[in-house]
Design a protein around this nucleic acid. Structure first.
Lengths: 233, 233
DNA sequence: CGCAGCTTGTTACAATTCGTAAGATTCAGG
DNA sequence: CCTGAATCTTACGAATTGTAACAAGCTGCG
């Protein structure tokens, strides 16, 4: 399970460095190139998961390269370009690019867009469906809770919604209103009670001591807070 | 082979019209909504290929909606927002959106980005005759399921219809209504049960553990979802 | 034709999910 | 302590879903 490989093709060394640093910090492997020629040579032996390509290259027309990469080879290509006209973006995308980022860009956004592409295009490396916390492992893909001994307990869809909400916002207050909205609950009259019951059932499955809940704590008059050290993946 | 369906969720009628016109001219089917509530209601019976979502909605937090749509239902979501800060874009993308377009936008670019998403994310176009998933190989030309050891199990036409539907929309919620529509089932009263039985039989052939199905998951009150990494070809 | 085998819908009943009601319990603030 | 409100828990039941068993329809074969 190696980290995804992102290639950078840009003739400006400063930009290559900036992107390399941001992407590596985000946990990706990177390879960077200043010329299309080198890049194409490297493609012989490696298959990048995402290719970042600058359109203005010294030795080759970027768009042609994008077209070959994206449509003929099926690669995932994000164009990074100084050409900001709508027409440029449209033709870039029509030619097969998956995304089009305009210079000057913010590294954080590039990382986010790379992640977005990987999420959809490489379901093999899907990792966002389990979470660990305080000895438990929650498998949202099979609706299972596993304790430290490996014993399994099934949880239902409704319970999973609540659990997921907690695991996504650990150690933060979650108000009831907040919860209703997140769980698509119609702001119905007696929905409060339903919410209570869901949480109660979830607590049972987490084997919480009613007198002294360690994970799901109630803040009287305000909402709930999930204590627990959550690690996703 | 119907045209892809694009939904538009925006509270400004002018924008809805603009997008509807541009998308229809580009050959897409469209549905537009002014409120999250209506949109969610419509999702019960249809599965859009791409969802355009404005973040500033009157009745609901857009980001929450995006998150549910994108990560839990596996839908393809493009955010359209007036919030132009890098931080907004990054969080939008991190929450599961596939793209983020800033208002004011050019309709042509929206169309191009919708096309880019469809090109990669809609494997419907790759409709081959075999598909692989989690150790299984489905041969639709021979009506055969082959496991990792090469053992074969025949499946019937009706079972194949359901299986194909699942394999074409992996990791996405498929509602019952949706299924009936796709499988040409008249919206008959008792057709629901027939659907159940089909799925039950398919599950048996896939050797699913009834207590803990790994591939075909039921979501109470909503529909089914097929987990599994599908590769067509 | 008649029969065997397969497919598939229908029915009936079991199991599960999940909201609601109702009583018990806890909490904040006198 | 006392009180009213908020929250927890339990039991119940309506709705939803799973599946075994049956029946109807189709196909091919002697």
């Amino acid at each position: 399970m190696t980290a995804p490989l992102v290639t950078i093709l840009d003739d400006e060394p400063a930009i290559r460095e900036m992107l390399t640093e941001a992407l590596q910090e985000a946990g990706f492997r990177t390879m960077s190139f200043g010329r299309a020629r080198e890049f194409e040579a490297a493609l012989q032996s490696t298959a990048p998961d995402v290719c970042l390509v600058d359109l203005s290259l010294p030795d080759k027309d970027g768009l042609t390269l994008v077209h070959r990469l994206a449509l003929e080879q099926g690669a995932t290509v994000i164009i990074i370009s100084g050409r900001a006209q709508v027409q440029d973006r449209v033709t870039g995308l029509e030619l097969g690019a998956d995304d089009y980022i305009i210079k000057p860009f913010e590294p954080a956004e590039v990382v986010a867009r790379v992640r977005a592409r990987l999420r959809k295009n490489a379901p093999a490396s899907q990792a966002g469906e389990t979470a660990q916390f305080n000895g438990w492992t929650a498998h949202f893909d099979r609706y299972m809770l596993v304790d430290e001994h490996g014993d399994e307990t099934a949880f239902s869809h409704a319970e999973g919604e609540v659990l997921r909400l907690f695991l996504e916002r650990p150690k933060r207050l979650i108000s009831r209103a907040n919860m209703q909205e997140s769980l698509g609950g119609a702001a119905g009259e007696s929905f409060d009670r339903a919410m209570d019951v869901r949480i109660s059932r979830l607590r049972t499955k987490l084997r919480e001591d009613p007198k002294n809940p360690r994970l799901i704590k109630t803040i009287y008059g305000a909402g709930y807070i999930f204590l627990g050290d959550v690690i996703w993946g």
